[in-house]
Computed example of a mutant assay.
Amino acid sequence: MSATLNSRRTREALRASARVSGELLLVLVMAAAVLWVLGRMWSVVWPLIVALLLTTLTWPLTRFLRRRGLAPALAASVVTVLFLLVATGTVALIAVPVASESGELADGVVEGIQRLREWAAGPPLNIDDAQIAGAFDTAVARIQDSAGSIATTAVTGVSTVFSGVVTAVLALFLMFFFLKDGPRFLPWLGRQLPGRLATDVPAVAARCWDTLGAFVRSQALVGLLDAVLIGLGLWILDVPLVLPLAVLTFVSAFVPIVGALFAGFVAVLIALVSNGLTDALIVLAIIVVVQQLEGNVFQPIIQSRGLGLHAAVVLLAVTLGGSLTGIVGSLLAVPVAALIAVVWNYLREQLGDPPQAPRTDGPGTGAGAPS
């Protein structure tokens, strides 16, 4: 009797395990199908994501203007124009001082190259000018042999720049419409959905919007910390173009990995050509320390508090996103993980507690913005 009962329990456990495995497999297949569809539609999805992130950044000002009596279209127009002016001013703040000191920087580059040649000619390398000239001729020959691939790369680069411009313009127009019509989106969405979905989907969308806002604000705070710390180090070392470099550091913080590498490279190069090798190495050390603090302290702590994610989850999400889809994956990994957590927490609440009335006072925003 006992053996029969144990056998029955074993079969029931196996059936339950098989059912759960089948359900998980269906979920994975559905997730793979959704990712495949998103990949096919990426030329539309990517501008939409950028527009949503920009909308979270500019919505507080739009909300303020609307509460002061401005019409939605006028408030969205004012904020969009201000955003363009700020973006243009940021570029000018970086480009104009660099252009004004371009002659001095060019002379510094020439002097730096000469110093490197003198250092290479001495011990322990003892490389004479003939060897340097031979290496230069070899490099030129390789470049000439690779002219075809270089031309292809150049064409690809031009295509990428053009695609980036199109994405930026489309994202800007989408941001304007989100700012103008966002508050009407969630009520409209609720009317299109049947049954309980009319309550659940808008509620989840409102929470997701709050989470995206927290992500953008935390990223801006991390970029500000980077800019202040690195700018302070450059100012102490009397490196020129401190303000443009600090602004570049802040802006590049929104582009993971590549942004930090680019801003750091520019700062080290300017320190090298203006202050010499010693100060350039000090600047490099400062940047490495700050970047390590950002990646392992600032970003995990700030984002974990703002997004409700543990610092380890933030680190793992960035690592996984970067390994799967590169820079874009690193950029979107944290907000995607936070949105998944939002959906999971909502489902857990609904399964564990009686349904509550939907929110009516918070931001049902962005693509469905607050009123």
Rank of each mutant, 00 (worst) to 15 (best):
residue 96 V to K: 08
residue 154 A to D: 11
residue 93 L to W: 10
residue 281 L to D: 11
residue 100 S to G: 05
residue 38 L to Q: 06
residue 82 L to Q: 11
residue 237 L to K: 09
residue 235 W to S: 14
residue 280 A to Y: 03
residue 86 V to D: 15
residue 200 D to L: 14
residue 221 L to W: 12
residue 1 M to C: 02
residue 93 L to E: 06
residue 297 V to R: 01
residue 48 L to Q: 00
residue 224 L to N: 06
residue 119 W to G: 09
residue 7 S to I: 03
residue 315 L to N: 06
residue 1 M to S: 10
residue 237 L to S: 13
residue 125 L to G: 05
residue 160 T to H: 13
residue 307 L to G: 00
residue 234 L to E: 01
residue 304 S to E: 02
residue 82 L to H: 02
residue 218 S to L: 11
residue 330 S to L: 02
residue 45 V to T: 06
residue 204 V to Q: 08
residue 272 L to S: 03
residue 354 P to I: 12
residue 52 L to W: 10
residue 302 I to W: 06
residue 52 L to N: 02
residue 30 M to N: 12
residue 88 T to P: 00
residue 320 L to Q: 05
residue 331 L to I: 12
residue 5 L to K: 07
residue 355 P to L: 09
residue 37 V to I: 15
residue 301 I to D: 02
residue 57 L to I: 12
residue 322 G to H: 07
residue 369 A to S: 09
residue 44 V to L: 14
residue 110 V to S: 10
residue 174 L to I: 04
residue 26 L to K: 07
residue 309 L to D: 01
residue 261 L to S: 11
residue 133 A to Q: 15
residue 307 L to K: 04
residue 137 D to K: 14
residue 359 R to P: 03
residue 353 D to V: 04
residue 368 G to P: 05
residue 280 A to E: 01
residue 287 I to S: 02
residue 93 L to N: 04
residue 128 D to L: 13
residue 90 T to P: 03
residue 132 I to E: 04
residue 61 L to E: 01
residue 317 A to T: 03
residue 262 F to N: 00
residue 250 F to T: 03
residue 61 L to S: 07
residue 316 L to W: 13
residue 75 A to I: 07
residue 60 P to G: 07
residue 330 S to P: 00
residue 186 L to Q: 08
residue 163 S to L: 04
residue 155 V to W: 07
residue 283 V to T: 08
residue 125 L to F: 08
residue 256 P to F: 02
residue 154 A to I: 09
residue 133 A to H: 13
residue 131 Q to L: 13
residue 225 L to R: 02
residue 343 V to I: 14
residue 345 N to D: 13
residue 36 W to T: 13
residue 344 W to R: 13
residue 317 A to V: 05
residue 227 A to H: 02
residue 28 L to F: 15
residue 53 L to S: 03
residue 173 F to Y: 05
residue 197 L to D: 09
residue 293 L to E: 02
residue 248 L to Q: 01
residue 220 A to G: 11
residue 164 G to W: 12
residue 90 T to K: 08
residue 286 I to K: 06
residue 71 A to P: 04
residue 218 S to G: 15
residue 269 L to N: 03
residue 176 F to R: 12
residue 220 A to I: 13
residue 258 V to C: 08
residue 150 I to R: 05
residue 139 A to W: 14
residue 357 A to G: 04
residue 354 P to Y: 10
residue 124 P to M: 09
residue 325 T to F: 11
residue 283 V to N: 05
residue 318 V to G: 03
residue 108 G to K: 06
residue 14 L to S: 04
residue 30 M to V: 14
residue 338 A to S: 10
residue 237 L to H: 01
residue 368 G to Y: 08
residue 109 V to D: 03
residue 173 F to T: 02
residue 91 V to C: 04
residue 144 Q to N: 12
residue 140 V to D: 08
residue 210 D to P: 00
residue 114 Q to K: 09
residue 323 S to T: 08
residue 350 Q to E: 12
residue 223 G to L: 06
residue 241 L to G: 01
residue 254 F to D: 07
residue 70 L to H: 07
residue 73 A to S: 14
residue 201 V to A: 07
residue 59 W to L: 13
